[in-house]
Design a protein around this nucleic acid. Structure first.
Lengths: 293, 293
DNA sequence: GTCGATTACGTATTACGTAACAATT
DNA sequence: AATTGTTACGTAATACGTAATCGAC
């Protein structure tokens, strides 16, 4: 049996070239390393070095042994990595959503139902969500369309409606009955970048919009407050108890039917048993503001 | 870094099922193993066991870890095996021959020229000899035909002539000028089994011969002495200073041209430099009896 | 009572550091 | 003189064994 520290020290030597340099890199003394290498030769039963008076180098066996050592040490690292990942996966529920709103609503419910689990959340596009579900890196995903895959279970878990908030001096702000996305062509619109599929939708329907993207939520909020630039709004946010969501602006509904979406909470059939209580609770949930404190 | 003994102990536990049984199989005490498993969990940073009051079993992490442990330990064994093989290969010259005679003649010369090397010898068929040369398990081979391969070097290293030794009462023994192998059809012939290609040759030329095969050289010799059964003979053996090679028998030459062969000592081009002195010495060597003492 | 696991404590192994030395550049 | 590797010896870390305890069957 070859103890791992011997392999580690051999590899360090093969990289450093001298015992002294290797010993330094290992934070041990040179004599200790010298002895270890002798011991390794003893354990393996073959000489690994050619020893001159003042110099020690790997022989053919030693070169070969160093390659093996590297492979084995890599395997051990891989073992640790994988086990920690497995442990983590068994203690976290990874939720992925196509839009921010489900990520506001669902995690609190998950935390209550599975108090011992860590809840992780992320936003990405439909393709990545589905592949994440399949490869096990996501346990729950929220789509804005019914999933077409087999082997999944889904329920509607709320709706969301998109609005555009325009400054009163904009001519479109008079059309209180609503506008189409295509009518926004050419506008400069403030946008928080983490909004999932909504961005793609607007880009598709109205390629001429010039988005002023903000990655930081705080900065975005300040820009909304400090300017009268148009911003998108959602019925979800309008119901939150914030004083003013988009002050100094007129809220106009969008008329494209795609701006009213239903969210579908989805999991693999194989994990449905585990999440059944959650699905029960969420089924038919309307995307509403959380209860006032 | 995971010390190997921990992996070994984990694997032992996963095979034994209880700490006590595993400890026994490892020749250590139960508490020692208990502590080791705790330590392994500590090193890996994940729990590996479900601990009940009186029972400890692997959890999902543990099962996975045991698989990794087995892989890694196997790799280490493989490492030792391969290194020892490499060491051995670098200290032995493996000679393979298609017939026994070159194995009598060449090893003494090799020992003299390469005194620090171990000489190993074996007999097998042409196909295995060539593949052995190519895969490195043989460094020198002796064929009874010129090799057709590229990347090899060869020299003739002697000849051998086959005879048949018949009892005087056999009608064929009168044909002192010689007989063909095909004429031996139907005879019972004593045969020492380790004679390489000679056996295939006789089988091919005279399928009707009934061979009385002996694997043991001593037994074969005693049978030759104690009977008058026909046996094959070789000019090499006739020249040895033995009192009687095939007593009570008449030695008749075989007329098939294939019964006179030239041996070709062969090595890879890549190792010719190493064996050049040997080739020099052997070149044109006639397969003759060794000098009388 | 037996069997299996953990805890506590002492022991023995062994990997390591320091010091001294030898040899090369 | 500076660098590199080995030997000798003491030390410290640690893996192990023994004894005791707790629980379950």
């Amino acid at each position: 049996m070859i103890e791992t520290y011997l392999l580690e020290q051999l590899l360090a030597f093969s990289k450093a070239g001298t015992l002294s340099a290797a010993a330094e890199s290992l934070y041990i003394s040179q004599p200790a390393l010298s002895r270890s290498m002798k011991k390794l030769e003893d354990v393996l039963g073959v000489p690994l070095f050619v020893r001159q008076k003042n110099r020690i180098t790997l022989n053919e066996n030693g070169e070969e042994a160093a390659k093996y050592a590297e492979r084995i040490l890599t395997q051990e690292e891989e073992m640790i990595r994988q086990l920690r990942m497995l442990e983590k996966r068994n203690h976290t529920i990874a939720l992925g959503s196509c839009a921010p709103v489900p990520n506001y609503i669902l995690p609190p419910i998950l935390s209550r139902l599975y108090p011992e689990m860590t809840i992780s959340q992320s936003i990405s596009d439909e393709e990545k969500l589905v592949s994440g579900l399949k490869d096990g890196s996501l346990q729950l995903i929220v789509l804005h369309q019914k999933p077409v895959e087999d082997n999944v279970v889904y329920v509607p878990c709320g709706t969301e409606k998109l609005f555009i908030c325009l400054p009163p001096d904009n001519p479109l702000s008079k059309k209180t009955e609503g506008v189409y996305l295509s009518e926004l062509d050419g506008l400069n619109i403030l946008l928080y970048s983490q909004i999932g599929f909504w961005y793609d939708l607007c880009r598709e329907k109205s390629p001429g919009i010039r988005f002023l993207k903000q990655n930081d939520w705080e900065s975005f909020g300040q820009l909304v407050d400090a300017s009268t630039l148009p911003v998108f709004g959602s019925d979800y946010f309008f119901r939150l108890p914030m004083p003013e969501n988009a002050p100094k602006r007129v809220v106009i509904p969008l008329l494209d039917e795609e701006t009213f979406v239903t969210y579908y909470l989805t999991c693999l059939q194989s994990s449905y048993a585990r999440f059944k209580p959650f699905f029960r609770e969420v089924e038919g949930l309307s995307v509403d503001a959380p209860p006032l404190p």
